[in-house]
Computed example of a mutant assay.
Amino acid sequence: MNQAKGKVIVITGAGSGIGRATAQHAIRTGHGVVLLGRREQALRETAEVADQEQAIVCPTDVTEEGQVEAAFGAAVDHFGRVDVLFNNAGTFQHGGSVADLSPAEWRAAVDVNLTGMFLCAREAFRLMRAQSPKGGRIINNGSISAHSPRPGSVAYTTTKHAITGLTKSISLDGRPHGIACSQIDIGNAATELTADFGTGVMQADGQKKAEPMFDVSHVARAVINTAELPLDVNVQFMTLMATNMPFLGRG
């Protein structure tokens, strides 16, 4: 068993984008990191900045209960505990209106964005309430779509609204066990998934316009700053966005 100098942080979707940036910032600031994602090679590339034993790679499909349980078991086997879950894995499907979305596309979004987050939060909660000293923190990656939708995003927007309910429920259920739960709602961080936003994305008025972006490293710092708070303090909700993006003027 390896004792982490800082927190033990489980990060889902750690093979790219926000997950990779957050994992690498956590590693550089001295935390032990457990990397979850479907692509093992991508996870190993994320872990390249880690010292030996500081990060472990756990290829995981977050929609599969058994795989999630195995990943958290590996975290405990390696580090002895779990202090933080960054519940980050998600998918976004570009599409048309609710009339054009297939049931298969709907289920795929719900499976990853909602059920996957539930399964990871459930496993983290179970470990945090049983470990000694007990407690921990769960940080859910919401989205500004948890507040206001983009056109043609019914499945994504619905799941992200649901994450707000998940966050509030976990926060309430966690109080007797020293478990805090936060939500970070991110708008236009520059990642592979948002590459087209800087060149042109559909607006509510039907026009296609480029939107301001910001460096994903700022998300990483915000997540880890929250992770490092004492458990009697919580950032319940945080919105982190490009200052001049049209979010507040949608519609």
Rank of each mutant, 00 (worst) to 15 (best):
N2V: 10
K5A: 03
K7I: 03
V8Q: 09
I18D: 03
A21P: 10
H25N: 13
A26F: 06
A26W: 13
T29S: 10
L36E: 14
G37P: 07
G37T: 04
R38M: 07
E40V: 06
R44Y: 13
V49Y: 06
A50F: 13
A55D: 00
V57L: 02
P59C: 14
T63C: 09
T63K: 12
G66P: 07
E69D: 12
A74Q: 15
F79D: 04
V82T: 08
V84G: 11
L85K: 10
F92S: 06
A99H: 13
A99P: 00
D100F: 09
A104S: 08
A104P: 02
G116Q: 09
C120K: 09
E123D: 03
A124F: 11
R126K: 15
M128H: 12
M128K: 08
A130F: 08
K134I: 01
R137Q: 11
R137Y: 06
I139E: 01
G142V: 01
I144W: 06
P151T: 10
K160H: 03
I163G: 00
I170M: 02
L172D: 07
G174L: 05
Q183L: 05
N188F: 03
T191D: 15
T191H: 15
T199R: 11
K209H: 11
M213P: 10
D215R: 08
S217Q: 15
H218Q: 15
A220P: 11
A222T: 07
I224C: 05
I224W: 07
T226L: 10
Q236S: 12
Q236R: 06
F237A: 04
M241A: 01
M245G: 00
F247M: 06
F247G: 05
G251R: 03
